[in-house]
Amino acid sequence: MTKPIVEYKDVHKSFGDVEVLKGIDLDIFPAEKIAVIGPSGSGKTTIIRMLMTLEEPTDGDIIVDGKNLWKMEKNGKMVEADEKHLREIRGDIGMVFQHFNLFPHMTILENCMTAPIHVKGENKKEVKQRSIDMLERVGLGDKINNYPSQLSGGQKQRVAMARALVMRPKIMLFDEVTSALDPELVGEVLEVIRDIAKNDDMAMVLVTHEMDFALDVADKVLFLDDGVIAEQGSASDVIEHSENPRVQEFLSRFRG
């Protein structure tokens, strides 16, 4: 049996007095596609933000490729990770955000090229070709010299995906990537994710409200409720056949 690439071990997270995550245990396997669903405020986004090192867990461990993400050994003791330690581990992880977060002062080609060149020190010519290929793959080959402000929301989100993919992550995180889009632009973004999910062998974790999409793409669905994983299983088990009343109540709001 293959080993998980990410393990959450009893992970808790509080913001002030509010405990958002109350003990998360989760294994993510290489190439696995996981959809995280649940009511807003249930802590879905926080789960992946901790893996991207944007939030520090209050308690518990996150193990990436056998290494503890938020703790490191120093003089025989486990201490809080410093930036160097975090950077060593998070290089394998990429993320796409709800609000795109493209760099507005760079063209979309430069958006894709900056990290491979400056962070990984890769050859500029090679990075440029790879970035162009990736932008063509997401359907933006004719826009490489445009600035983000000249693009629609759907196009921006596709650039954001290309930018993350050029870094060749082993794990890609998607944080409600269609929530900020006009309804008619959602399809083009989901299409690209579907393409990535089918053809790339990285692990993917998608926080989403698109149930049909989750059903189509995900190997595993987690239903998060009130800070715990209330239900998990194959997409059809959770979305179509769950007997958990909370899941049914949540899903009924989508079926209308």
Binding site: R90, F100, A164
Partner: peptide, 22 residues
């Protein structure tokens, strides 16, 4: 915008690189 910092972290930039390029 704080999202710029988050995007820089997601691309594994160091604090210096984040400041300098973003």
């Amino acid at each position: 915008d704080n999202g710029q910092t988050e995007a820089a972290i997601a691309l594994n930039m160091s604090s210096y690189q984040k400041m300098r390029y973003i």
